[in-house]
Design a protein around this nucleic acid. Sequence first.
DNA 1: CCTTAGACCTGGAGGC
DNA 2: TGCCTCCAGGTCTAAG
Length: 279
Amino acid sequence: MPEAPEVQNVLNYLQEQLQNHKITSVEISHPKLSGNMDYHEMEKKLTNQTFHKFFRHGKYLVFELDDLDWISHLRMEGKFLIEDKIPEDPKINKHIHAKFHLDNGKWLLYMDTRKFGRMQVYPRTEDYYSLPAFDKVGPDVLSDQFSAKYLHNKLKNRKCAIKTSLLNQSIVAGIGNIYADEILFDAGLDPRSITSHLDLEDCKKIVDAAKQILSESVKSGGTTIRSFEYGNHLSGTYQDSLKVHQKSEEICSRCHGTIEKVIVNQRSTYVCPACQIRK
DNA sequence: CCTTAGACCTGGAGGC
DNA sequence: TGCCTCCAGGTCTAAG
């Protein structure tokens, strides 16, 4: 489901609800949910652990517990809900794959229609970025490490489309299909441009656009499309600020050209060919 | 090392 | 109503 801004809003909500609360029991019902150990072992490890700190890295959530780091990736449709009671509606219930009972009597529920999401648990470390889960994950899009110089260096030898590079989490972590289109529109670059053709100036435009758009979206509560919500009725309004994504055949807000839908990297991609330069 | 096609899953929307 | 195809905020992998 979510990209960095939506994950950040999920994190903020969970921190507010869970900080200093203890997990009293755990039941995982989808064996594949636990990525780095048997799911019964993960149930055992998380039981009686208390939530202390909350971090986001790219699209990953990191929960620092007593002596564990718990990493969660929501992929396409993962959601955390906090409820007084477990929902009885079978249409909802069948997609709940983990239940965490809390010391305040509430339930933290993990729901995921498509079952793509994964969780990992590691012994706690002071530098969570050194965890194996982040071996192939680059700097966060909103961190100072993600600079024009850094990006240009990463891009100079690649010949795939620039959009494919922005979706590559080992280059920069946190950008997904919606914001990649919006960032490239703002930077005035066609998503199909050959990555290595971009110069340092282009990279500066991309980095500036990425930081500006994503931080604006964090403030707006993220993007909520196709009636997705990402928590307990958690939704954002950044969809009202989108300039190209899902706007094929509409008039470009910058040049009055027509926005087109094309396929890049097997993903739907929206572009104004009139004002986004193809390099 | 880089790139790309296919796999992993389910449900909603639209065509017939 | 039923069946079919396509589509979806993501990432692994296998193979070239």
